[in-house]
Each structure stands twice: as structure tokens, then as C-alpha cells.
């Protein structure tokens, strides 16, 4: 599923949430590399790390597709040169103007990272920019097919994270692998992916992945979901043994025997007339009204426990 998403399986906002124990930047870069490989323009808004560090490791072909907007060197505009992206510029119309100036083709916007912005700008404002950017860019003539944003999960309150998750189409939480994975080279991590599809379906998967050189994503299969429930199923399997299989006497009826058995009237089976007369509630006869008595000994839990032989 993760591979499908990286290959362009989802549009809209993709969040990659990492933590101190497991970094997600390489996954972000692999999404960027996959977009570049498809021939899309990749616009990088980088706040966390300098340009050289971000571009390191990309193949030459992919690096040529990257359009870099540097917000790391001078985020507050102190030098006055105005070449990079400043914090005040993070508004919808400013960003649209900036992005459309460089390219017109379908593009992927990479935000590295959104946490930096959330800590410095009002939370609702950042969310609104994220939600409106594709629509406004479309009006201006630029198609932004997806926004991939890195989010450092342990920097924010859970409430804020949840509010962000509701905005996103895809949320990938990166976690360290609990045990070494066969086939991985030891650097395997776990991705918990939540994909909200357009039809109103939600997919949730947990899978191992690793990132190869040149930021090629490699999925290593899914995690077994809930190991405990599987064990319970194993226990239930031998229960379905047929108890009537190896008997020394006959338990089965032939068709003729069955008919003979069914033709015998049982004491509680009445004729149709008697049945209907019994079923009809007499119109003017007495009815029983039951009022619960204080001294009644009624067991609410099991009203007919005396039947349990």
C-alpha cells in the first residue's frame, strides 16, 4: 500500500509523521524521488535543513526536477536580501504566486517540515493554507497534485495532531521495527498508513519498509495484525470434529425412516382447527395483568435458569 501511495496513488495532503525514535525524512525524500521519476515537478519548501543536506543522495535526474525554495537560511528576513522564502510569506496567495512563477506543470509540493511552521505560526492559519493551496493554485493555472509534509509528532499536542490528521488524505506514521525483519538490511521501519479514499472508505495498514539508495522505497510486507486473535483461531480449529463419525451404533436415519418418524403425531401437536382456536385471543374473556410483587424471586440475569440441565 505504501508503494502504491508513493507511486502516485493518492492526491491531496499526505502527512508523514515521525518521532525522535524513528526519522521519516528519508521516506519523505523517497516520495519526492518517486514524483520526480514520474516527470512531475517537485517544489521543496525546506525549513528544517539546508539545501545541500536535502539534495544529498538524490540521483542527478531526480535532483534536476527539484525546485528548491530555501526557508532555512533566512526565515525571518533579517539579511534583507529576500532571495529565500520568509516566514511571513507563508500565506495562500503569496505561496501561489511563488509556486506558479517557477513552473506550470503538475507538481508535488514537499514541506520539510510542517512542525517548524506550526510552532511559529497560528495553528489554524497553517491548516487553512494547506487546505486552500491546491484550490487557489488551480485557479492560477498550476496543478498541485499532492502536498507531502513531514510532521514531527512529538513536538505537538495530541489534539493538534488529530486535527491535522482530519485534514490529510493520507497519514503515514513511521515507527521503529519491533524485531529484525527477514529480507531487510536491519534498517527496516514500520509504517502505519491511514488512507482516506474518495468514495468514503478508510484503509489502514501496517507494513515494514526500507529506503534503498537513491531513495527508492522498498516494502517488505505487512505486519501480522493482532497476534493474539490469531492464536485464538488456532484453538478453535479442532472443535469442528464430527462426534458422530466413529460410533458403534446407528445415529443416522434413512429417508423412509425419517418419514415414518415425522408421521407420528406428538402429544403437543394439535389439528389445525384446535390450533387456531387456541391461538385466537378470546374477545371478552379475562386477561391476566401481572403486577410485580415485592417478594418475587425473579432472577433478572437468567429468567429460566431452572431449565439449564
Amino acid at each position: 500500500m505504501l508503494g502504491k501511495l508513493a507511486a502516485g496513488g493518492a492526491e491531496g495532503l499526505l502527512l508523514i509523521q515521525d518521532s525522535v525514535s524513528c526519522e521519516g525524512r528519508t521516506l519523505l525524500k523517497s516520495f519526492a524521488a518517486a514524483s520526480a521519476q514520474r516527470g512531475e515537478c517537485v517544489q521543496v519548501l525546506s525549513f528544517d535543513i539546508p539545501e545541500e543536506e536535502f539534495k544529498a543522495g538524490f540521483s542527478a535526474a531526480a535532483a534536476s526536477q527539484l525546485l528548491y525554495h530555501d526557508a532555512f537560511r533566512d526565515p525571518l528576513g533579517w539579511t534583507g536580501q529576500g532571495c529565500g522564502l520568509a516566514l511571513e510569506e507563508f500565506g495562500t496567495s503569496e505561496l501561489v504566486a511563488r509556486l506558479t512563477a517557477t513552473t506550470a506543470g503538475p507538481s508535488t509540493v514537499v514541506l520539510d517540515s510542517i512542525s517548524w511552521l506550526l510552532l511559529r505560526l497560528p495553528f489554524p492559519r497553517v491548516c487553512q493554507v494547506l487546505a486552500q493551496l491546491p484550490k487557489r493554485a488551480k485557479v492560477a493555472g498550476l496543478k498541485i497534485s499532492r502536498i507531502v509534509a513531514l510532521l514531527h509528532g512529538d513536538l505537538h499536542q495530541t489534539g493538534q495532531l488529530e486535527a491535522l490528521h482530519t485534514l490529510a488524505r493520507v497519514v503515514v506514521k513511521v515507527e521503529p521495527a519491533p524485531e529484525p525483519v527477514p529480507g531487510g538490511d536491519g534498517a527496516a521501519r514500520v509504517a502505519v498508513t491511514l488512507h482516506r479514499k474518495t468514495g468514503g472508505k478508510v484503509m489502514q495498514k501496517k507494513e515494514y519498509f526500507t529506503v534503498l539508495p537513491d531513495f527508492i522505497l522498498k516494502c517488505l510486507g505487512e505486519l501480522p495484525e493482532g497476534g493474539v486473535s490469531r492464536e485464538e483461531n488456532d484453538q478453535e480449529v479442532p472443535v469442528t470434529v464430527d462426534p458422530a463419525a466413529n460410533l458403534t451404533f446407528n445415529l443416522r436415519l434413512s429417508e423412509a425412516e425419517r418419514q415414518a418418524k415425522e408421521s407420528v403425531p406428538l402429544p403437543y401437536q394439535f389439528s389445525e382447527e384446535k390450533k387456531s382456536s387456541l391461538l385466537q385471543t378470546p374477545a371478552n374473556l379475562g386477561k391476566i395483568y401481572y403486577e410485580p410483587d415485592a417478594a418475587d424471586d425473579v432472577d433478572e440475569e437468567d429468567p429460566d435458569d431452572d431449565l439449564d440441565v
Binding site: F123, P124, Q128, G159, Q160, A163, T166, L167
Partner: peptide
Amino acid sequence: GSVLWDDDICCNE
């Protein structure tokens, strides 16, 4: 009341 309504009740106690 969501964040898109410019309200911060969803992200702040």
C-alpha cells in the same frame, strides 16, 4: 468549529 473555520478550539485546551 474545525480549524478551517479559523477557530482554535480543536487544537487548544
